[in-house]
Amino acid sequence: MYAGQHGDYLWELVDGVLVISSPRAGVIKRQAANNRFNNAEQATWFAQGQIDMHSDELLAALDALKKDV
C-alpha cells in the first residue's frame, strides 16, 4: 500500500485501486490502477499525475459533495 497527499487531495493505492479523497469531503474518486510499481516514488508520481490530469473532474465532484453536505 502506498499513500500520500498532493495539493488538496489525499490518495491511497491499495490492491490495484487508486482512491482519491478530500480531508473534509471524504472519498471523491476510485479508479483502477493496473500499473506495477517498484518503489514508493513511482507510486507517488503515478497518483500525483492522476490527480493533476483529472483536476477538473475532482473539483466538480468535490463541489457536488459539498453541496450535499
Partner: peptide
C-alpha cells in the same frame, strides 16, 4: 496490455 513497470501517465 498491462502497462510496463514504472508507468506513470497513460493518456
Amino acid at each position: 496490455a498491462p502497462p510496463p513497470e514504472g508507468a506513470l501517465a497513460d493518456f
